[in-house]
Amino acid sequence: MSEDRQQALASTFLHIVEKLTFMFGEPVALDEIELSPEPWVEARMQFEGAVNGSLAVIVPESLQPEIAANILGLEAADLTTPDMLADALREMLNVVCGHVIMTLAGAEADFKLLAPQHQVVPRERLADLLEDADSMGFTLDDEPLLLHLELERG
C-alpha cells in the first residue's frame, strides 16, 4: 500500500472511529504493536462494486467491551453477552468500511457491503498480519488495534 493511501486511510479511520466511539486513536508502526497473550478477535467484511476486497478490524478481546459501551452509551459492565460485543465491533467495521471505500474510490463510487463476520484470530494468523504490508497499526485509547485492507488487484 502506498504511503499516501495509508495516510488517507488512517485519517479516515481515526476520524470515523472517534466520531462513533468517542475514543481517541493514533497510528503506530506495526512493529510497535504488542500482541497481548489474550485472544484477539476480528470483524471482517467483503465489499464489491467500484472496488472489491475486504476490510478487517482486529483487536484484543478485552477492548471489545469498551468499544461497545462507547457506541451504545452504556457502562461496560452492562454489556452482558458476547453477542452484544461482537455486534458492536461489526458495526464499527461497517461504518468504517463505507467511509474507507469512499476514500479509496470517491463519494460517487457505487459499492455494496456484505455482512460482516466476527471471529477469534488464530495466533499464527495474528503474527502474519503484523508482517503484512496491507495491515496498519493503531492505538485506540492506548490499546492496540490493527486494520487490514485487502484489495483485489484489477
Binding site: V95, G98, H99, E108, F111, L113
Partner: peptide, 9 residues
C-alpha cells in the same frame, strides 16, 4: 441510515 451511501445508490 447507512454507511454504504454512495451517491448513485
Amino acid at each position: 441510515v447507512s454507511s454504504a451511501g454512495s451517491g448513485p445508490r
